[in-house]
Design a protein around this nucleic acid. Structure first.
Lengths: 204, 204
DNA sequence: TTGACAAAATGAACAGTGTTCAGTAATTTT
DNA sequence: AAAATTACTGAACACTGTTCATTTTGTCAA
């Protein structure tokens, strides 16, 4: 009974075909331009067919969001060589902000756009997000073990650190930095991060 | 020659008519539902007419964003009675987060939605945003004068503080907190802020 | 009051969007 | 070969923002 297997495989292949098309459109024209009709045209099927493989557009954007997370996760690992926990955390934030500013489209999908959020909520499991968060938390835990952030707990502190860097990137991406002259915005964003982390750098 | 004056006044009245309709729709159905056709129907004019008073939908959302800012600004003033600078700053953040969680629609318009951002960028002046930012900066400056955050500058530090609270609110609103059980998300968000501010509370 | 001009408003048209579903085509099973 | 199942289609629904030729309304001088 290899027929079921083949069918399953063919189904997965078609899903990949759809996702690959979505990815291409996303890269070439931005993810906002990823429409059902455009994907359908790209893969030479009718729009209705796509709904046989994905329940709606949000689910497709959620998959793109996962792909973006994988790229980010790899980027994040570049801090692994740093041994001093606080310096590692500091660099972690820098890498995060740099990724956001360098890959606005991927960042939007991962953390700003509504669609994947709805999927995250309904699926009740967020593997890619969790993996990334765990990596941050382990870094924060190392800091706690080394005597930084006395009296804090790793989970809460990780969320706080994440909020800080996310706030920086998303205010920038959504153009809410009009009080800073245009040419200075990027350095100011990094500067804000450094100021904050410097103020946190003390073994109480 | 009072005719020009009357015309100008009538023009402003019509703009207000449009904005009031937009506001009503926004309050009743959420700002995403504010469409040109819906506004037109509400005020009993044709869709084309709206373009005689606003250059596009973004400009209307930008005006709604300004109205939201005014409400937020008032809310913010509630911290004015606090004399100790750091405690005032701490409460400022709390008020900010509370406003975001209690008024998701207004918050989205102020800080997350793309449309007003485009307007902010093109108009090169952001009165409402600046006013709010200046209020934060003066609070931060008081902290610096009192010996907190040694070695930091008010501008940069204000952006950092703002990023922190914005990060908290926007991760929550865009449902990127799936690692926290649903019922705990809100308290965890406030907890993350308290942890961060506690770690910053030390006169170096 | 009438004719001329300008200003204001219209609404159809353009070019899209996500999603559904009755009907057709292809494949597999009996 | 016929029946049953699965895959796919594409028209239809209900929307969206925006433009622009055309019509309506308002103003003003003759």
């Amino acid at each position: 009974m290899g027929i079921k297997q083949r069918k399953d495989r063919e189904r997965e292949e078609k899903k990949d075909l759809i996702l690959d098309a979505a990815k291409r459109i996303s890269i070439e024209e931005g993810f906002e331009k990823v429409s059902i009709r455009k994907i359908a045209e790209e893969i030479e099927y009718s729009p209705g067919t796509i709904y046989l493989y994905f329940k709606n557009r949000d689910e497709i954007l959620f998959e793109l969001h996962n792909i973006a997370f994988q790229k980010f996760y790899k980027e994040q690992l570049k801090i692994s060589h740093i041994t001093e926990p606080f310096e590692k955390l500091r660099e972690h934030g820098r890498v995060y902000i740099k990724f956001g500013l360098d890959n606005p489209d991927l960042y939007e999908l991962m953390f700003i756009v509504q669609a994947p959020g709805n999927e995250i909520e309904s699926s009740q499991s967020w593997n890619e997000g969790m993996k990334t968060f765990d990596f941050l938390r382990s870094n924060v835990q190392e800091c706690l073990d080394a005597g930084y952030f006395k009296g804090s707990d790793a989970n809460t502190l990780s969320i706080a650190m994440w909020s800080l860097v996310h706030g920086i990137v998303s205010l920038y991406l959504r153009k809410r930095m009009a009080m800073v002259p245009k040419d200075f915005i990027k350095p100011v964003m990094f500067g804000a991060y450094e100021t904050m982390i410097d103020n946190l750098n003390q073994k109480k």
